[in-house]
Simulated scan of single mutants.
Amino acid sequence: MATIGTPLAQVEKSEVRGPLERREERLAWLMLLPVLLALLALGVYPALSTLWFSFQQGGSFGMGTTNAGWANYVRLFHDEQFWSALRFSLLYSLITVAGQMICGTALALFANRRFAGRWLARAAILFPWAIPTATNSVIWAYMFNDQYGLINSLLEHLGLMNPAHPTVWLGSPQLATVLIYVLAVWKANSLVALLVLAGLQSISDEIYEAARVDGASRWQILWRITLPLLSPVLLVTLILRTIESLQAFDLISAFTNGGPGNATQNLGLYIYLQIQQFGDFGYGSTLATVLMAITLVFIVLYMRMLARSGMR
């Protein structure tokens, strides 16, 4: 409907589309159709299937199940191992994402400076990300092995450890947890650095030159110019890293497999054990539904942050 004061010619031009516009619109939808079908097949359908299976019980791997109502969710609230895995997942996400964002941003600021051999420094920063996660975890597991690991061997040669009483790195819940945090930060801060570095490249040098002419110090430029201009990139990176950390599996599985005991077991590993080891597809789907809901909550919160920051 035309608004008061709008010329009729402009209304007709904006509301009436010609054959060319309609053909272009049909072509656009046709080109988007494979993507939409892939999203339905790989995203929406599995999510709805998981939700449906969360109300089932019995059978094996989703076959021959019967309706369980809310029994799986009632079981979940009384499952101490679930609450332990949930606590570890949330702490893992909070600590590792914070470490990745801080270290990755610092590395990006360093790699963005002009100095001889900058290309070599950038390649070294990306090296941890180039190694597959499972390979990284296995290498670290061998390094921190208490019998033949590299770390204990170095400590022994430096006289910092008694060979008769080696440090059991992965046998201590506290040490294993700390090592997982360090490994996760070391592995993924490369990706954060890459994304932040791309954002730094988009900031014009004229802005920095004007700030230096006005007498701004390096810290003032960082806090008042660089970081505010990087806020959209940092928020998007924060979303991606949070989602990945909540769904982490291969890093923990290959490094500690949830041990010692269940000290480093997160929700992803607990879901895998319920489905693959115990064949409890219904309860595993219930756990997966809860994890999916938690992830969606974080996504909504971050999207509100993006909206408040003015991103479109």
Results as ranks from 00 to 15, higher is better:
residue 2 A to V: 09
residue 3 T to S: 12
residue 6 T to H: 00
residue 12 E to G: 05
residue 13 K to S: 11
residue 14 S to T: 03
residue 22 R to W: 14
residue 22 R to Q: 02
residue 36 L to S: 07
residue 41 A to M: 13
residue 43 G to R: 05
residue 53 F to S: 12
residue 54 S to D: 11
residue 55 F to P: 03
residue 67 N to V: 13
residue 71 A to F: 06
residue 72 N to V: 12
residue 77 F to W: 10
residue 81 Q to N: 10
residue 91 L to F: 09
residue 93 S to G: 01
residue 98 A to M: 09
residue 100 Q to Y: 03
residue 100 Q to V: 05
residue 107 L to A: 14
residue 108 A to K: 09
residue 111 A to I: 09
residue 113 R to T: 13
residue 114 R to L: 05
residue 119 W to M: 08
residue 119 W to H: 13
residue 132 P to M: 12
residue 135 T to P: 01
residue 135 T to N: 07
residue 140 W to K: 00
residue 140 W to G: 01
residue 149 G to A: 11
residue 150 L to R: 04
residue 150 L to H: 00
residue 152 N to Y: 06
residue 154 L to Y: 04
residue 154 L to G: 02
residue 158 L to E: 01
residue 172 S to I: 08
residue 174 Q to A: 14
residue 177 T to Q: 13
residue 182 V to D: 02
residue 182 V to G: 07
residue 186 W to P: 09
residue 200 L to A: 07
residue 202 S to Y: 07
residue 202 S to N: 13
residue 208 Y to L: 11
residue 217 S to H: 03
residue 219 W to V: 10
residue 220 Q to K: 08
residue 225 I to P: 04
residue 233 V to Q: 04
residue 233 V to R: 00
residue 234 L to V: 10
residue 235 L to W: 00
residue 237 T to D: 08
residue 261 G to K: 04
residue 268 G to S: 05
residue 276 Q to N: 10
residue 279 G to F: 11
residue 281 F to C: 02
residue 284 G to Y: 08
residue 285 S to G: 03
residue 285 S to T: 03
residue 289 T to C: 12
residue 311 M to V: 13
